[in-house]
Design a protein around this nucleic acid. Structure first.
Length: 323
DNA sequence: AAAAGCTCCAACCGCCCATAT
DNA sequence: CATATGGGCGGTTGGAGCTTT
């Protein structure tokens, strides 16, 4: 059943490549070109997995690769595209001739992320931390109760950016993680019914939407109430879609205080959100959440999508074309 | 001088989707 | 149709080299 294995994983060499091995791959590609990588180890006389050979060629041996430092122009390019699409390294690398996704990813992780942080810019959202704090405060109201928010207040008062960043990142991570529980593994769409049932269970168990981050309940930054099998979401405006994912997990929200939202990088960075045709994005959503409010959320995503395409026609259209 | 900590990046891991069998 | 691989991708890691203590 199925294809034969490409190699005996247990017996192939791993780790750093020697000059001789590199020479063998270069010689093989020079005479045979790039084809089936699983045949390369055998034909080139290498005791390596084909996948490992492909990676070595792609990330290091390709003759068109640059091995010098990134230029300021390249740096700017990475920043701009990362701000737009997030950590889609292969897509970003397409805009940088001679650079691989691995190069871009390493450069981001070792240099740019730190550089932005030092400049007071959140590398995830590309917003100034001061703005994040303002928005965070507007979202949560920063009530004085609760250890987490107390820590935020302390961080602010004592000017401890590290703690502040850590807490905001933690908040984002927790909500992202919780949202992940409600993503359909196949369609990657939110499982609204599951979210609703989860919320109902929490309410029945005496949990409220003000539960702490240490509990396992997902707390939308938007105030919504749930009835059995029906979720009612009431965002104050369609533009607040990203707060579903990046919002405050610690406290309930006065939706009237919601701040202006930009197109969420985390949504754009979702491969499926980019790759799916527009009509499919809508029709795949479960019927149960076809309330006016939920529709406005979908509309919000689509509106942002359209806006982004208007704002960055050259960039996003390329991505759409790629899929 | 040497131990500890830090930076960088090549290589690996594990997942996904398309495709071959 | 079921199963396994190929290729692509993003995330993570190991270790060499450098810096700090």
């Amino acid at each position: 059943m199925g294809r034969p294995p490409c190699c005996n994983k247990a017996n192939v060499k791993r780790g750093p490549w020697t000059a001789e091995e590199d020479a063998k791959i270069l010689a093989y590609v020079a005479s045979n070109g790039i084809g089936n990588w699983t045949l390369v180890p055998q034909k080139a006389g290498l005791n390596r997995c084909g996948k490992s050979c492909r990676l070595r060629w792609t990330n290091y041996l390709r003759p068109d690769l640059k091995h010098d430092n990134f230029t300021p122009e390249e740096e700017e390019c990475i920043l701009e595209h990362h701000r737009t699409i997030g950590s889609r390294w292969s897509l970003i690398a397409k805009h940088l001739p001679g650079r691989t996704d691995n190069d871009v990813k390493n450069y981001w992780n070792t240099k740019l992320k730190k550089k932005l942080t030092k400049m007071g810019i959140d590398p995830l959202t590309h917003k100034p931390f001061s703005q994040l704090v303002t928005e965070y405060g507007m979202i949560s109201g920063l009530p004085s109760t609760g250890n987490k928010n107390a820590l935020l207040h302390t961080s602010l008062a004592n000017a401890e950016p590290y703690l502040l960043i850590k807490e905001i990142s933690r908040a984002k991570a927790i909500n992202t993680q919780m949202m992940g529980k409600f993503l359909d593994p196949f369609s990657r769409n939110l499982q609204w019914n599951a979210m609703a049932q989860f919320q109902v269970m929490n309410q029945e168990n005496g949990s409220s939407s003000t539960s702490s981050a240490s509990s396992s309940s997902f707390v939308s930054p938007l105030s919504y109430s749930c009835e059995r099998s029906q979720i009612q979401i009431a965002p104050s405006s369609p533009s607040e879609c990203n707060e579903y994912i990046l919002g405050d997990p610690f406290s309930s929200v006065d939706t009237g205080q919601m701040s202006e939202c930009r197109t969420p990088a985390i949504l754009l960075s979702n491969k499926d959100s980019v790759s799916r045709p527009e009509n499919e994005k809508i029709t795949q959503l479960p019927a149960k959440h076809s309330t006016a409010a939920a529709d406005s959320f979908v509309d919000g995503i689509l509106a942002h999508d359209n806006q982004m395409r208007l704002d960055f026609p050259n960039i996003l259209d390329e991505y759409y074309d790629d899929y």
